[in-house]
Amino acid sequence: MNEKTTVARQENSPTRADAALTPPVDVFEDATGIVLHADLPGVPRDKLHLHVEAETLTIEGEVDLNMPEGMEATHAEVSVPRYRRVFTLSRELDTEKVSAEFRNGVLTLRIPKAEHAQPRRIEVEVA
């Protein structure tokens, strides 16, 4: 699983409306597949968009601050109300069986390896 930052930055012109924050992620892999955790605080469930196309995984979310009317920001670290990150998946991952969970602003994705790519114990027959 590689990150596709370069391509994403070329495709998207750097206009203000398009700007997005890069959410921090943890990615680890064991024998059965890949697990990804992404921090997307402030994104309601219905504004989280996951997209798998060919071998590209896109995570996008819009922040809903629910600000009171007439609020003036004096200090903003989350300055753009949008997150986006794009990854390239590898062929042995089974994109049909991705499971996603979104809880307290943390997205957890499990991408299993295709069955043929999973390690298998080979029985040795004693003649």
Binding site: H37, D39, L40, P41, G42, L65, M67, P68, E69, G70, M71, E72, A73, T74, H75, A76, E77, V78, R103, N104, G105, V106
Partner: peptide, 30 residues
């Protein structure tokens, strides 16, 4: 300090009636 880059990230703002603080603390039991 209101130094950037710490965890949790924070936004601070205000209206004439109130001070509003947003702290971005994902994945923590409230």
């Amino acid at each position: 300090g209101l130094a950037r880059g710490g965890f949790p990230a924070m936004n601070v703002g205000g209206t004439p009636q109130s001070v509003e603080i947003y702290a971005f603390v994902p994945g923590v039991d409230p």
